[in-house]
Design a protein around this nucleic acid. Structure first.
Lengths: 173, 173
DNA sequence: GGTCAAATTTTGACTTGTCAACTATCTACC
DNA sequence: GGTAGATAGTTGACAAGTCAAAATTTGACC
């Protein structure tokens, strides 16, 4: 039966191609992770050497700087993409250093708003300027078009993940 | 002096445009970080729920799987992009679980080669198949062209960072 | 052949992160 | 207005990461 044999060969071809595509997704993910780690490790090490601080603290200050009215722990942890328990302790430290304050919310006594102090704003501004220079330098090898394409593709990736999680969530909970 | 005034306006325009581009680099970096964290947090949580393991251990096993002859601590830590001190303790745990072994190198008694045990190979294979499915699903919303473009742009980014570090290293060390 | 610097791994002290359990408060409903 | 369940934050136990200092071995040079 030549037609059956032909069909089997085609099926095998399809399967091989699918597997090939799957491996490509893994390689893409590994490359995404390693590119990010490359930048992150470098920024981390420079923040430490130059300002004696960490990326987590810098990130926390950056979030607060964009919200002068302050942010509650919950939203703050969402924006930082870490758990609330982690943020609690970061805020403890930054509060002890005098860079942020906890302001009780009169409307809801469960929540606290975290705000930059004047000193925190001053210190962050100094670091942010230098930090921006580092990033510009590290990304300088990409053309403006490359940067814009990458920016767009990362948005598409975030959407892709969000949709996958929605499918998952719709099924399970 | 209209020409001088005109020049000043042009200069201002250039500076504003430069600052604009700088901010775009920062936004690109933040988006890269958040896209990566999105995937990483999800994979991390699934590895935990499904297999009771962590991304660090999974990654370590994955590196060893690609090197059946074993890897010394140094190269292993470079590939995982973490410090050797960290890898020492991860290997301690995986060795205690019977998934890897430390093999002394007869050529150089300072180094140890870390290898997968049969059990380690078996366990990793089971996890890797499921893991690949997760990644494929999370990246499914990107077209094949998008994935290939992203793959290329991430390579360009890694090169850009490497060149920036080389410039830096050439100057400082 | 001895010494001194470089390389490899480990260890200790610390920060960042997770999860699960706990406390306190709020909201909705009876 | 009292109770039940959801929501906000903190805490404890632990995993994963950092750096710097120690221990051991190697290699090169005099």
């Amino acid at each position: 039966m030549p037609s059956r044999k032909h069909g089997a060969v085609e099926l095998l071809g399809l399967e091989a191609r699918a597997t090939e595509e799957d491996h490509k997704s893994i390689r893409l993910w590994l490359r995404l992770l390693s590119a990010t780690n490359l930048v992150k490790n470098e920024v981390q090490s420079r923040l430490r050497r130059t300002f004696g601080t960490t990326l987590a603290r810098f990130d926390l200050l950056a979030q607060l700087e964009r919200h002068p009215e302050g942010l509650a722990m919950g939203p703050l942890s969402k924006r930082m993409m870490v758990t609330a328990g982690n943020v609690t302790r970061l805020v403890d430290q930054l509060e002890a250093e005098g860079l942020v304050t906890r302001v009780p919310d009169p409307r809801d006594r469960r929540t606290v708003r975290v705000r930059l102090t004047a000193e925190g704003r001053r210190r962050f501004a100094a670091m942010a300027a230098v930090h921006e220079g580092w990033i510009v330098e590290l990304f300088r090898g990409l053309s403006r078009e490359d940067r814009e394409q990458l920016y767009g593709l990362l948005a598409a990736l975030k959407q892709s993940v969000a949709r996958a999680l929605a499918r998952e969530g719709g099924r399970a909970g």
